[in-house]
Design a protein around this nucleic acid. Sequence first.
DNA 1: AGCTGTGGTATCTGTTGGTGACTGACGCTA
DNA 2: TAGCGTCAGTCACCAACAGATACCACAGCT
Lengths: 138, 138
Amino acid sequence: MKPTDSHEDCRPVGEILHQIGGKWTVLIITRLGDGPKRFGELKRMVGGISQKVLTSTLRDLEMDGFVTRTVTPSIPPRVDYELTDLGRDLLVPLSAIGEWAIANRPRVLAARRQYLEDHPEAMPKRAAHVALMKQAAE
Amino acid sequence: MKPTDSHEDCRPVGEILHQIGGKWTVLIITRLGDGPKRFGELKRMVGGISQKVLTSTLRDLEMDGFVTRTVTPSIPPRVDYELTDLGRDLLVPLSAIGEWAIANRPRVLAARRQYLEDHPEAMPKRAAHVALMKQAAE
DNA sequence: AGCTGTGGTATCTGTTGGTGACTGACGCTA
DNA sequence: TAGCGTCAGTCACCAACAGATACCACAGCT
């Protein structure tokens, strides 16, 4: 089987999913789904994100054409972020997968517990796993 | 310090999307959608992935309960990977977002070109952006 | 001996994301 | 009038992680 053909169908998927797979991206896009938001507003809504990371994530989303950035040069300055048509378009499959994640998280957590029972030596190395395991513990 | 309640709806989404947002995860899951595959078979089908990354990605997917790993201790050893029910379940929203990515990649690429025109000084810092820009250039 | 094909590990580097300090013009307040 | 907080960032530094390169053990074939 030739890698190249089927390959080309899937590369862009990987690329774009890699983009939106950033740690905070989904949170931000779904928050913006309710309407335009200011920078600090987003920061408070998301909770736990640093300014630097929020800034760069929003820059990326702006670069990809998912959000617009509107600056009002007042004192204090005001910056509004809003989803573009493309962003709202993305919101559809994104929230679909979001609902899937919410609905199936127990299954994933159960699978993790199971895995650790079956492979007791498998120390979870990745932080994300540890985080999920803590969720599983409660 | 809990910022918001709606927060809790979205954390799991971020976590799971971060997992499947790995560079190769989507490729692998969609390949496995056609049926069980052997390690080397997957490696050839995906094309360009290193063994280590394929191994660890499959480990993660196994840990999350998306694939099963069946070892036949022959010489040479044989390892088969197959989607679980949970994995096939995930395949549905995942391929939805996959189709979105394929359909909308031109829009994203156009947005990137536009952004670089509007902000000529904005050298893309992230490697993923550079990769996409190269795609945009051709 | 040397090669291929099997699945996987050891090591190293580039990227991501996180922390804390700093900006600059203003408004509150004590 | 000196200090503190708001707002939307930037900068320097750093730990953690993802992913690429190289290697391993085993068997069969030539």
